[in-house]
């Protein structure tokens, strides 16, 4: 993978990549997702790493592995919504931490966020 983030495990980035595609609607509930080998070839990553990422997604109920048929995104939209919310939370926590490190108070962080949202409208 030429564009991976060097601070995160690669299997985690692969799982997040699939998840992001799902929440953005690029993959729909029940759609077939690539096999580990197809994905590894596309992104030039180790197939063993992709298998691990897909196993994590399967354990979380986001991907259903049908033996001999392939991997499918779950049709359980509640699960997908949960996963989306978790991703949002992770992003928020990181953002809040970074701002705290810069010395901003809770109130200032709230102000900064709403100002930024206003600018980005």
């Amino acid at each position: 993978m030429t564009d991976f983030d060097t601070n995160k495990p690669i299997y985690q980035q692969i799982a997040e990549d699939i998840l992001k595609k799902a929440v953005r609607g690029e993959i729909l509930p029940g759609d077939r997702i690539p096999s580990a080998r197809e994905y590894a070839s596309q992104k030039l990553v180790n197939p063993n790493t992709v298998v691990r990422a897909f196993q994590d997604l399967e354990r979380e109920g986001l991907v259903v592995v049908k033996r001999g048929l392939g991997n499918y995104l779950t049709t359980d939209t509640t699960r997908l919504e949960d996963a989306r919310f978790q991703l949002a939370q992770k992003t928020l926590i990181q953002c809040a931490k970074d701002l705290r490190e810069l010395g901003y108070t809770t109130k200032q962080i709230q102000q900064l966020l709403s100002q930024q949202l206003e600018v980005m409208k």
Partner: peptide, 13 residues
């Protein structure tokens, strides 16, 4: 290089 890596690490593994 990418093609060679793809062949040896994925496609013909």
């Amino acid at each position: 290089r990418q093609e060679i890596l793809r062949a040896l690490a994925v496609e013909f593994r």
